[in-house]
Nucleic acid binder design. Structure first.
Lengths: 228, 228
DNA sequence: CGATTGCCGACTGTCGACAGTTTTTCTTCT
DNA sequence: AGAAGAAAAACTGTCGACAGTCGGCAATCG
């Protein structure tokens, strides 16, 4: 019996490293750790009731995702994003999203459009139901993830997922909701409209506007959070 | 002051993790490990005269760079690139390079142009001197790295550097030089010409052609290497 | 003779410990 | 009292060890 090439991840017993990584990620984006704060391996391992080895590996993982930074012989610190880096992040995001939507409009697929459409509906429902911002952000990222998935370029998708972690960090810096109820959810219809139009120029305009709004929202939010 | 001739046989002084990472990277791109080959932590640690802990951390680092893949409870394996992934990698590279050159032509800087120009001269010299392919590839990547550096977007630069490791892996898959002496080095003049012209459309055309040539070179090279 | 099951070696995941370094605290001198 | 310096505490980098797990091999069963 040959192994199925798919190799689905059954109910794989989660190793400690992944669990710690998830725990830390949640703790960081829930602002239970202040940006710049030092993470003590020993105390963290002690709190979780495990040894330092898995903690160190998880920290390395988060470092590669941009959530932590390490200084030799000093340990790990929660990444503190400078205002300038916010622009960099969204500029890279723009490059990736432009590429993705350009691909999608060139290889138009009605099935893809349907999937994206369903996701926007879901986002609007969630916005109406008054879910917390975290859930709405996740659904928002999910929409864009679907776009990258639809390009069929796994490496491009990975680049976006790497960036996603930092996007969540940006959101975490802002803190509580400012405004933007379901208008953000609804704004994704514009992207779909541009896609359906089949016009590359419209798509580029739409995505530039979309990401620009998101960037301004985050940058202003962080600015206000710093003044506070 | 420590003893000059220490008992440690191999590496010392710097971070063991970084040293192991460099060692492994070199070993992989020099094809001392076959793609798909399993890396034994114990034997590797034994060969280097160190314990498994730094080896594991280095392996995790290379995994985040796409040089290794890990399977739970099975260990680390040298990444075996599928033909399809080659296309994905160069497609992502195209997205990044388009964005970079678009930025450079929009914010034209004579100092940047001078630096890039010097680098191309250096590449041509090295090509004439008949250096090995590894050195030429590095200088090639260095040119593009300079481009990304010049954008001032650190995150974009990091995305390119992440991709660079995989690009080196692609080159490693090909093996020995096929052709392409200094023509590759010289082809970068076209990019500079487009930049100097100040025309965004010319730049895009130039970078599309440039990356397209590189992609075809790698894809065909890998194809031939597989037939062999 | 082919398929199944139990055993064996090898390896990873995790742990506790030690040494060197960094940070903090406490002392001492001006 | 404040600053410089020394001792102490805390922490990271690294190590060796142990237990659970995986793949392969052989004995067993149909």
């Amino acid at each position: 019996m040959s192994e199925p090439s798919d190799t689905k991840p059954f109910i794989q017993q989660r190793n400690l490293v992944d669990q710690v990584a998830d725990y830390l990620t949640q703790a960081i984006i829930q602002r239970r750790y202040v940006p710049g704060e030092r993470l003590s391996e020993v105390s963290l391992a002690g709190d979780l009731g495990i040894s330092r080895a898995p903690v160190r590996e998880a920290a390395r993982l988060l470092e590669s995702r941009g959530l932590l930074v390490s200084r030799p012989r000093r340990g790990f610190f929660v990444r503190a994003l400078e205002a300038r880096e916010l622009g960099d992040i969204f500029d890279l995001r723009l490059a990736l999203e432009r590429h993705a939507i350009e691909h999608l409009v060139k290889h138009y697929d009605t099935e893809v459009e349907k999937r994206l459409s369903r996701q926007v509906e879901r986002m609007c429902e969630i916005a109406d139901s008054g879910a917390d911002e975290g859930a709405r952000i996740e659904e928002d990222l999910r929409f864009h993830r679907l776009m990258f998935e639809a390009t069929g370029n796994h490496r491009l998708l990975r680049a976006f997922e790497d960036l996603s972690h930092e996007l969540r960090l940006c959101i975490a810096l802002i803190g509580k909701t400012h405004e933007a109820p379901d208008s953000i959810a609804g704004s994704h219809w514009w992207l779909l409209e541009a896609l359906k139009s089949g016009d590359a120029r419209s798509c580029r305009k739409a995505i530039d506007y979309h990401i620009g709004v998101a960037r301004d929202y985050v940058i202003q939010g962080v600015h206000e959070a710093q003044v506070r």
